[in-house]
């Protein structure tokens, strides 16, 4: 790159941008270069290597917690002397969070798990959802590119010395390491529910196919070892599927965006700016459309991860061993118990 480093805020020239844009938007000819996790500049200060995704997680968690904390104070009902106004939630973000929390609790979790189990696990599910959502949404903001552009425009000595001025950015959930960490959390939540609801004996019975199989006709015992192996594999496959689904979806979306942006660079190399100009406009339009899709995917994948974790947790219950049944009828019979869906393997 040939940036003017003589002034603190050098305006990029046309040739500078020609060099910079392909690098920033698509990392040259490889769209994955833009999407894949990179080393953070923070590692140069800390003395050990840190990936951008790791720093992004910390930043996202802090920002999300701050936003949720502020929202929680606005959603919470005030003192009695405020009258009817105490029941109002002020602020659009707070209202949005309130609607999402209510939708998740009343619309998704309670019909699946029943009131009691939902109330018990609600903080976990909401934390999981908003944590993943924040990681997904932060990935939609080109923070890394902004830092890179900023460093290029300021031309600071640090940037020249260190070579990398990107501290955080990118989609953390497009990293298999991060989604694996979240899947491990889900796995432990499932195990926790199993020990809480079933106990050791109940869990082993569950792993062997349930009481109907173990204490039923003797001939059925032959299939117990097979079921046990399948169940053990299922214990690890379920969280693995969660990790891979989230990682693959987020990686694919950003790869698609990077590929669309890459067309501008490719056109510039092939036919100069007269070709890159029109193609960049078309690419930008497609990128906007895909970004809206990515915004939807960010919410959807966060919800899917949380919801499937709830489904797997719901399976770890006495009720799940009963086979197919009417969840609501079951809940009525047991008070506010767990009404898990069909036992899926």
């Amino acid at each position: 790159m040939t940036f003017d480093m003589h002034t603190a805020w050098a305006i990029p020239t046309f040739s500078n941008l020609a060099d910079f844009v392909p690098s920033m938007l698509a990392s040259g000819a490889n769209p994955l270069g833009h999407v894949l996790d990179k080393e953070s500049a923070l590692g140069d200060y800390l003395g050990f290597k840190v990936k951008l995704s790791a720093v992004s997680i910390v930043v996202a968690a802090i920002l999300t917690f701050a936003a949720l904390y502020i929202a929680s104070r606005r959603i919470d009902t005030g003192s009695a002397n405020e009258g009817a106004a105490r029941y109002l939630t002020r602020g659009r973000i707070s209202q949005l969070i309130e609607v999402m929390v209510q939708g998740i609790r009343d619309g998704a979790l309670e019909p699946l798990l029943g009131k009691a189990t939902t109330a018990y696990f609600l903080p976990f599910f909401l934390s999981l959802f908003f944590f993943i959502l924040s990681l997904n949404l932060i990935g939609l903001i080109p923070l890394g590119d902004a830092q890179e552009l900023s460093a290029a425009m300021t031309g600071s000595e640090d940037a020249k010395k260190l070579g990398n001025m990107v501290f955080f950015g990118g989609t953390a959930t497009a990293s298999i390491s991060v989604t694996a960490g979240l899947a491990i959390v889900s796995f432990f939540a499932m195990m926790f529910q199993a020990s809480r609801e079933l106990g050791v004996k109940g869990f082993l019975e569950h792993m062997c196919g349930g009481k109907e199989l173990l204490y039923g006709p003797k001939g059925l015992l032959l299939v117990v070892p097979i079921i046990f192996i399948v169940e053990v594999l299922g214990l690890f496959i379920k969280p693995s599927a969660l990790a891979i689904r989230l990682f693959a979806n987020m990686l694919a979306g950003h790869t698609l965006l990077a590929t669309i942006f890459m067309f501008t660079a490719m056109a510039g190399e092939a036919g100069g700016w007269w070709l890159a100009g029109p193609i960049s406009i078309v690419s930008a339009l497609f990128a906007v459309a895909i970004s809206f899709l990515e915004l939807f995917v960010a919410f959807l994948q966060a919800f899917v991860f949380m919801f499937l974790t709830a489904v797997f947790i719901g399976m770890m219950s006495h009720h799940a061993d009963h086979g197919e049944h009417d969840d609501h009828a079951h809940e009525d019979a047991h008070g506010a118990g767990v009404g898990a869906p069909t036992h899926a393997h």
Partner: peptide
């Protein structure tokens, strides 16, 4: 501005996993 890229999307980073768990 040389960025060090991960070689493959499936490259595993134990620090990333640990950070995700702890955070």
């Amino acid at each position: 501005m040389a960025l060090v890229l991960a070689a493959s999307p499936l490259d595993f980073d134990l620090i990333g996993l640990t950070v995700a768990l702890i955070v």
